[in-house]
Amino acid sequence: MDKKMTRKEYMQWSQKEAPKTRKGKNMLMAFLIGGTICTIAQIINSFLLSAGMVQEDAGTVTTLIMIFLGAFLTGLNVYDDIGRIGGAGAAIPVTGFANSIVSPAMEYKKEGYVMGVGARMFLIAGPVLVYGIVASIICGILYYLFA
């Protein structure tokens, strides 16, 4: 290896030479996939409202249905393909959250229901839950103090 190049120079040079992320295409696909998922949820929500459900209940039931769909499509080996194409558009909606919990549960089933499924299920979703809950506690305290 040529000793003339320092680590920092090498890192900069190799990054410059690296194949680039196709940002335009990725953003377009995230918009389309994410938009499709949200449109499906909106259709379900509107249907529930028209069937006579109150707004609050319809929102909860819609979320539950979307979580089910995300988990179901993960089980059918479909959601990983949606995620590969849609990126953040598939990861951010609640279907992506379901995928992040069901996929390790499937993967670690071989290690048993306790140390496998039970212990590894929140491998990816765990940090989201931890910091989501911490953030909501902080918001709650601020609301209590200033509202």
């Binding site: 993960t74 990983d80 992506g96 995928n99 996929s103 499937m106 491998l123």
Partner: peptide, 13 residues
């Protein structure tokens, strides 16, 4: 890396 069915995007490298 990640579980097989996890829908993440692969970086180009």
């Amino acid at each position: 890396r990640y579980p097989l069915e996890f829908g993440n995007q692969r970086p180009p490298t």
